[in-house]
């Protein structure tokens, strides 16, 4: 399966850029329209475990990279077969200024909290997501805090350090 997997993906998705990052980690970059298709495709191949959804802010290129890592649940029986080690890292690029994309919950249910978190920390809007309510943060920040242009040290200096000490009479 390992040998033919890149070929299978290339066959079905001619636009995909398939490269092997290292042993057992396959990086696939696709145009964003094809993401749902390729995720359904690999899920049917047995990659039923969505490990995580991540987001990388490539600020110099003005793009967000959404990263979906999938692998398969393997029941271990007897010997180490090497099965279940293969990971596929599916990546898409979206525009930084117009950060909207579709949700993948119909394919992988457990993407829900990950997308919620990315919405909150990066400001990426996932259309069709049932609840994009605040997850982790309490305050509102000028820029979503995980973006590269949010300077946390500066924010601390300007905000938390500006709060006055309690003045007490001696």
């Amino acid at each position: 399966m390992d040998k033919t997997l890149p070929e299978k993906i290339r066959e079905n998705f001619p636009n995909a850029d398939v490269s092997s990052v290292e042993e057992e980690r396959l990086a696939v970059t696709v145009p964003k329209e094809e993401l749902i298709d390729i995720l359904s495709f690999v899920k049917n191949l047995g990659f039923d475990h969505l490990v995580m959804v991540s987001c990388v802010d490539w600020i110099d290129e003005g793009q967000f990279e959404l990263v979906y890592i999938v692998t398969s649940y393997v029941s271990y029986n007897g010997e180490s077969s090497g099965k279940g080690r293969q990971h596929i890292i599916v990546k898409i690029r979206i525009d930084r200024s117009k950060a909207t994309f579709r949700t993948i919950i119909p394919v992988y249910q457990n993407a829900e909290p990950y997308e919620r978190e990315i919405h909150e920390l990066y400001g990426v809007d996932f259309q069709g997501h049932p609840r994009l309510t605040p997850l982790l943060l309490e305050r509102e920040y000028p820029v979503p805090p995980f973006r590269k242009d949010f300077d946390s040290r500066n924010y601390v200096k300007e905000f938390f350090d500006s709060i006055p000490e309690i003045e007490e009479e001696k």
């Binding site: 943060l137 805090p145 040290r153 924010y155 000490e165």
Partner: peptide, 15 residues
């Protein structure tokens, strides 16, 4: 100390 989500000095808010 440089996290955007932790308050740095507790004694500014409660004694």
């Amino acid at each position: 100390w440089d996290s955007y989500n932790t308050i740095n000095s507790l004694d500014k808010y409660v004694p």
